[in-house]
Write a protein that binds this DNA or RNA. Structure first.
Lengths: 239, 239
DNA sequence: GTCGCTCTGATTGTCAACAATCGACAATCA
DNA sequence: TGATTGTCGATTGTTGACAATCAGAGCGAC
C-alpha cells in the first residue's frame, strides 16, 4: 500500500513525485531491513553513489533520512554504518511494544467492525502459511503486518508514526536474528490466543495477552542474545 | 549538560566535532520551536543559505533532519514550510503524552531516590518562578523540563528518544499557542498535585494524575482551537 | 466571463570538483 | 624497544553551477 498516493477522485490518484533521494532511501532501507546489509556493516558514500548511479548529493540526503529513522549511525569525517542493537536495546523495543500496542487497542477497541475481524484473520492465516512454508523472511513481514493492523485501524496518526519507527528497529533485529541462527523457522506460530482475544470483548484480557505475547518473544530472544553482548551503537542523543 | 563532551583527563574534554549541518539544524530548530518562525511559514533554501552564509548542500541536509523530526514538511520541486498542527494533531499529542508518561513513571517508580525528589521540586519551583515572573517563553521550557525529568530518570533510551520527538511537537504547539493569544501567562501553575503524587507511593494514583493533568491541558486548549480549524499539514506517511 | 494555453520567474533537484578531516602505517628518537 | 610524530590514502564535508520542475501571470479563443 503506497501511502504517498493521494486520493483525488474515484480511480484517480496523483502519482508521487519522484526524487532520487526517495528511491535510494526506499531501496537502502529495504536491503537493511531484509538483513542483506548486516548490522555494523560500513556504508561508504562513494561506493553507494556508484552503485545507485547517482551523485553523492541525493545519496547523502537519503542517508540522513535513514540516520534520523534510527537505522544508520554516522560519525563526522569518519564513516557511517548500520546500527547494531544491544541486548538492552532489544529489551527496550519489547517493553515499548507492549505500551504502544496496548494503547493502540484502547483506541481501536470500539472500531473493530466486520472488516477488521476479517482482515485480522486473513493476516493471521497468511502468517501461518509463511511459517508452514518455512519462509523465514516472509514470516517476519507477515508478523509485522498482523501486529500492524491495530495501528492502521485506530486512526491515531502520531501513534502509527511511532509504530513505524519502532517497527524498523524490530524488523532489523528480527532480520539479524534470523540471519544469525534462523531459530524462527521451526517454532510454532503462537498468535492464536492473540487473535482470539483481539476478537473478544475483554480489553483487560487483551492488555494481558499483549504483555504475555511480548514477554514470550522477549524470553525466546533473551537466551539467544546472552553471551554475545555487543555494545550499542544507537545514539541516545537527539540530533 | 553537553552529552558530546567526553571526559579524557582532568580539565580536558574532547570538543564536539562540528559540521555546518549540525549548527544549522540546531539554530533552525531553536527559532522554529521558539515560535519566531510561525507554523505554516515557508522555508526557502536559497534565502536561508545566504542568511547562514553556507551553500545549499549542508543546509538541505539540516532541513532533511528537521523534516524527519516532524518539524518541517516539504513537497518536491515546490517548497518547504513549518508544519501547522490541526486540532486532531493536538488531541493526538495529548493522548500520546498520557501513554508515554505513564510508562515512564512505571519504569522510574523504583528509581525515585533523594536526588530525583530534590530535582523534581527544584524544577517545579523554577516553573512557578517563571509563571510568577510572567515569562511565557521561559515557562514553556520550564514545564517541559519538569515533565522531562521522569524520562531522564527511567533509563529507557528508546522512550526518551520518543519523548524528544513528541516534545518538539508539543513545544511547537505551545509556542504558536502563546504567540496567538498568550493565554498561558495568567493561568495558575497546576502542577502541585502532579509533583505531590509523583513523590507519593501510589503508582495508580500517578497514572490517574497524569491522565487528569493532560485532560485539563487538553480542554483548556480545545476551546481555544474551536473554530480556527486549520488543515493538518503533518505527513502521516513515513518518508 | 471562463476555459485552456504558453511563457516566465522562482524554487528545488542534481552534479562534479575541491577542501577538510580522519585512521593507519611508517619513520624517528629517547 | 617503546612511544611519539610525520605522512599518506581514504572518506566525508562543502561549494558553485547547471538542469528539472512548479505555480501563477498573462493572453487569446470560445
Amino acid at each position: 500500500m503506497l501511502t504517498s498516493e493521494i486520493a483525488m477522485a474515484p480511480g484517480i490518484v496523483r502519482l508521487p513525485k519522484s526524487t532520487f533521494r526517495e528511491h535510494i532511501a526506499e531501496r537502502l532501507r529495504a536491503v537493511i531491513l531484509s538483513g542483506e546489509v548486516p548490522p555494523g556493516a560500513p556504508i561508504v558514500e562513494t561506493a553507494l553513489a556508484r552503485q545507485f548511479e547517482v551523485s553523492r548529493g541525493p545519496l547523502r540526503e537519503a542517508l540522513r533520512q535513514l540516520i534520523e529513522e534510527g537505522l544508520l549511525v554516522t560519525v563526522p569525517y569518519t564513516g557511517t554504518h548500520v546500527i547494531s542493537l544491544s541486548v538492552e536495546d532489544v529489551r527496550e523495543i519489547h517493553s515499548m511494544r507492549v505500551t504502544l500496542e496496548c494503547f493502540a487497542f484502547e483506541q481501536a477497541w470500539d472500531k473493530r467492525d466486520a472488516t477488521f475481524r476479517a482482515e485480522l484473520q486473513r493476516r493471521h492465516a497468511a502468517l501461518v502459511a509463511t511459517i508452514d512454508a518455512g519462509d523465514d523472511r516472509a514470516s517476519i513481514l507477515a508478523e509485522l503486518e498482523l501486529h500492524g493492523l491495530v495501528y492502521e485501524v485506530c486512526g491515531h496518526r502520531l501513534l502509527q508514526r511511532t509504530w513505524n519507527s519502532l517497527r524498523g528497529r524490530l524488523q532489523l533485529y528480527w532480520a539479524a536474528h534470523h540471519r544469525a541462527h534462523s531459530i524462527r523457522g521451526p517454532k510454532r506460530d503462537g498468535h492464536e490466543s492473540y487473535v482470539e482475544t483481539a476478537l473478544g470483548d475483554d480489553l483487560n484480557a487483551m492488555r494481558a495477552e499483549i504483555a504475555a505475547h511480548m514477554q514470550r518473544g522477549g524470553q525466546q530472544t533473551e537466551t539467544f542474545l546472552k553471551g554475545m553482548a555487543q555494545p550499542s551503537t544507537d545514539p541516545s542523543k537527539r540530533g
